[in-house]
Design a protein around this nucleic acid. Structure first.
Length: 280
DNA sequence: TGTGCCTCTAGAGGATCGTA
DNA sequence: TACGATCCTCTAGAGGCACA
């Protein structure tokens, strides 16, 4: 059994039984919420191994390489939600809002062991999400978003203590890469150059591109383009009357030709075809 | 750990074509 | 005629290497 709201970005929800992607390390530029219902599984994140028990919930900054190593002799059940952080930003701008993305940004990868009533509440929230995971209209779509923000608040309360205790990044190198990601996420809609990063972070562009690739496995511009294409897909989804040209400039591309090519490479369809799919 | 330089590849931008 | 896709050329940026 497998359900999915959006097959790919900006948001995807899945509940799987015995459908593990076993032993394959992967990374992505989305954040991930992983909930383990049952089975036998070791979850590998970077150089850490988590032996999972039912009720374990893992938050992931997808850039770190990770994979689930599952024992096929046991029924494996898990829920996963991949999401683009840009997509949650409007909810962070509300008066009195809590930065529910902070655990993903600062802790990056963290396991919460939910038991008893907490476990029941997590499963109820996931069930709600599953219910809205029909994507028939904007009502279901927005109810899914609101339910997901509720889940993020639920997760946040378990992260408050580790966030307070958290020390700074173990190395300057990782701190620099986080600074690059933060800068790119805030300025992806503008005309970005390596010189800007050089000036902003006071490090040479040669060094910045090198450490970014070392830590994340992708180049700064690969990351930037993924971010822009994700945002374009969100705009096509939410503003069905927006033209390809408008979306192109809105997300920071200066040339339609380049946008069209990058979009087709990442999504598999041209922007216009994707837009038409969203309108039907 | 951080910088500088060089080479080569992939991205940027202009021109052109296709289609509604 | 406007919009979007594709082709082609040039250059910016990634990656490798040496060095402080």
């Amino acid at each position: 059994m497998e359900t999915s709201l959006f097959p790919k970005d900006p948001f995807s929800f899945g509940y799987n039984i015995n459908r593990p992607i076993q032993g394959v390390f992967h990374s992505h530029n989305q954040y991930e919420v992983y909930y383990f219902h049952g089975g036998k599984c070791n979850y590998l994140i970077g150089d850490k191994i988590y032996v999972l028990a039912p009720g374990d919930l893992i938050i992931l900054n997808g850039m770190t390489l990770h994979c689930a190593n599952v024992d096929p002799d046991y029924e494996y059940r898990r829920s996963t939600i991949h999401f683009d952080p840009v997509y949650i930003r409007p909810f962070l701008e509300l008066t009195g809002a809590v930065n529910v993305l902070k655990p993903f940004q600062d802790l990056r990868n963290y396991r919460i062991q939910l038991r008893g009533q907490d476990k029941e509440e997590a499963e109820r929230l996931l069930l709600n999400l599953s219910g809205f995971n029909r994507r028939k209209d904007l009502i279901d779509f927005n109810r899914f978003r609101l339910a997901f923000v509720d889940l993020l608040y639920f997760i946040y309360q378990f992260c408050q203590k580790p966030l307070e205790e958290k020390q700074e990044f173990p190395t300057d190198k990782e701190k620099h890469v986080q600074d690059i990601i933060s800068f790119v996420e805030s300025h992806y809609g503008e005309d970005l150059h390596m010189e800007q990063l050089e000036r902003e972070l006071h490090l040479s562009k040669y060094y910045l591109s090198k450490i970014f690739k070392d830590v994340t496995g992708v180049t700064i511009f690969d990351y930037l383009y993924q971010l822009r294409i994700n945002q374009a897909k969100i705009l096509f989804l939410l503003y069905k009357d927006m033209s390809v040209t408008e979306v192109c400039y809105q997300v920071g591309f200066k040339h339609l030709a380049h946008f069209s090519r990058m979009f087709k490479t990442q999504v598999g369809n041209t922007p216009e075809k994707f837009r038409k799919q969203m309108r039907t």
